[in-house]
Design a protein around this nucleic acid. Structure first.
Length: 308
DNA sequence: GGCCCTCTTTAGGGCCTT
């Protein structure tokens, strides 16, 4: 099984099944996942020569629902795809039929996730936003919500999430989010497949943060959740001249791979988008199959044993 | 705080995450 081919196929799914969800919580009622209606258009630009060879399907604007999730209403925006991106999309189309045949061979549910927090200390700070994306795609492949930290947000300059956006009764606290999160992950585990949750610097930041939030709710993270940190993968990357990359930051990786920025910067779902594409690029460059990626995975209990 | 790298391993500095 060739991972790069499957991954390219997945690239197709990323573009065609993106659906953001805004989790709204009403005190005393069952939380509901509501679709967001705002959209932005991905418009393809093609030269005349390219346009002649382009199939009609690829010429159609690709609609991507965008949920800024900041409580404000913003007008639709337009994302222009340049020539190199168009070339990549065309390559993806070549693999589409392969992916559709092999997609059920995926050994695991691959989910990219990211959190925004009130700071860096897992003991003192709290999660204020979480976003997940099932890279397989499909209906409800994305999940995103703000989280009420029940404390002041002092680092809004990082992510743009202000206290008044999250410290409100209609934003769920983490303990109210836990059962929904567990159910969402379970809903992605069709046929009892292994779930693998990818995060950049996940071992050092996201997963320990999740562990502490779950602990506060007196809930253990399921043992069948396998986490994979993409930071060690990034540190293995080398340039064509053999030298290492100057930086392994997620945004620097995005720029290195010339991945366009989609959505508001420094928000959880935007970073999930970036991670999804960076992961695709890195796995291709490092020639890593899905099982090889999962070999580097770890459980929440592995971290707890090291740093209780 | 974990991981990586080096002027290292009996250590220390820097990266990466918000």
């Amino acid at each position: 099984m060739s991972f790069p081919i499957i991954w390219s196929g997945n690239f197709y799914h990323l573009r065609h099944s993106c659906s953001y969800k805004l989790l709204r919580f009403q005190s005393g009622s069952t939380p509901k996942i509501l679709p967001d209606t705002r959209t932005c258009n991905l418009r393809f630009l093609a030269s005349k020569a390219e346009g002649k060879n382009q199939k009609s399907q690829s010429k159609k604007p690709q609609n991507v629902n965008v949920n800024h999730n900041d409580g404000s209403v913003k007008s639709s925006s337009s994302k222009t795809i340049n020539k190199s991106e168009l070339h990549e999309f065309k390559a993806v189309q070549c693999y589409q039929h392969i992916s559709e045949k092999r997609v059920f061979d995926w050994p695991a549910v691959v989910i990219a996730f990211d959190i925004e927090t009130t700071g860096l200390s897992r003991q003192k700070e709290r999660i204020i936003e979480i976003a997940l994306r099932d890279l397989y795609g499909g209906k409800n492949s994305t999940f995103q919500t703000l989280v009420n930290p029940e404390k002041e947000v002092s680092n809004s300059y990082i992510h743009g999430i202000r206290s008044d956006m999250v410290n409100r009764p209609d934003v769920p606290r983490f303990k109210e989010l836990v059962p929904i999160l567990l159910q969402y992950i379970r809903s992605r585990q069709t046929d009892g497949r292994q779930v693998a949750l990818f995060a950049h610097n996940g071992r050092g930041f996201d997963v320990p943060f999740l562990i502490h939030e779950f602990r506060r709710c007196k809930v253990e993270i399921p043992e069948d959740w396998l986490f994979v940190d993409t930071l060690p993968l990034a540190r293995k990357l080398v340039k064509p001249d053999g030298s290492k990359l100057e930086s392994s930051k997620l945004d620097d990786l995005r720029q290195y791979y010339e991945i366009p920025l989609i959505g508001p910067a420094h928000r959880a779902m935007q970073d999930v988008h970036t991670l999804a594409y960076v992961l695709q690029k890195m796995s291709y460059q490092l020639k890593l199959s899905i099982p090889e990626l999962l070999d580097g995975g770890f459980r929440a209990s592995d971290i707890i044993k090291v740093a209780p």
